[in-house]
């Protein structure tokens, strides 16, 4: 596993220009008064989804054949990818959260640390759910075919939102937006806990699915 981890870190190192660009975008965001929490969402997402890029590197030019001819088991590979993903998510989230606090302090924006932590935590969980869905797809289908599935999922989400929005407009008395906001405010901690449980569940199922997919794959 250590060897695989080093390999993925080296792939990351190869992309230092990309990370430089990210830092630049972060600064532009600060300079252009973008909502600071978005920086946290954006950087957590970009850092942790780097794991998808490493899977593509591994797959490139029959790379999997060679990789699994080394002392690398399929289980070891999947374990390393999820660990790498979590480490990246932790690093990305921590850095961007620190960045967020710094930005708000510099801008002299008032904030409650606990609330920021809750919102940031929610960002992290949503990103982990996204990756929990994406990793098995990337392992199963590769980068190109995988993109089609992502578009499909994004399409379904957009359609659901449109349907929900239309329904709410047609039934204004059923659930008022203010009611939803109030409900969220009153139950924030519970909701965060619920999302955390969902995220952990999705991640655990995702791990099992990825392992199954890889074990069935022939190279």
């Amino acid at each position: 596993m250590k060897g695989l981890f080093v390999k993925d870190l080296l792939i990351m190192k190869k992309q230092w220009k990309f990370f430089g660009l990210l830092a630049l975008i972060g600064f532009i965001m600060i300079a252009t008064n973008v909502e600071p929490m978005f920086i946290n969402t954006y950087l957590t997402f970009v850092f942790s989804s780097f794991v998808l890029s490493t899977i593509s590197y591994d797959d490139y030019e029959n790379g999997f054949s060679f990789l699994f001819s080394l002392p690398v088991s399929r289980e070891g590979y999947v374990r390393e990818k999820y660990l790498f993903c979590l480490c990246n998510a932790a690093v990305g989230w921590s850095l961007s959260f620190a960045f967020l606090l710094l930005t708000m302090t510099v801008r002299k924006q008032p904030f409650i640390f606990g609330e920021l932590l809750m919102t940031g935590g929610m960002n992290l969980l949503v990103v982990l759910v996204f990756l929990g869905i994406s990793i098995p797809i990337r392992i199963k289908l590769g980068a190109e075919k995988g993109k089609l599935v992502y578009f499909g999922i994004a399409g379904v989400i957009v359609i659901l939102f449109v349907l929900m929005d239309t329904w709410m407009k047609n039934h204004p008395s059923a659930i008022a937006a203010s009611q939803i906001e109030r409900f969220i405010d009153n139950n924030a901690l519970w909701l965060e806990g619920l999302v955390a449980i969902i995220a952990i569940g999705v991640f655990a199922i995702s791990y099992a699915v990825s392992l199954k997919v890889l074990e069935k794959k022939e190279f």
Binding site: Y57, Y60, E61, F66, P71
Partner: peptide, 17 residues
């Protein structure tokens, strides 16, 4: 598995290394 040394015809480490 460490006791194997392998050369494959059509694959190896990533060309970016």
């Amino acid at each position: 598995r460490e006791k194997f040394g392998v050369v494959l015809a059509d694959s190896g480490f990533s060309g970016y290394f």
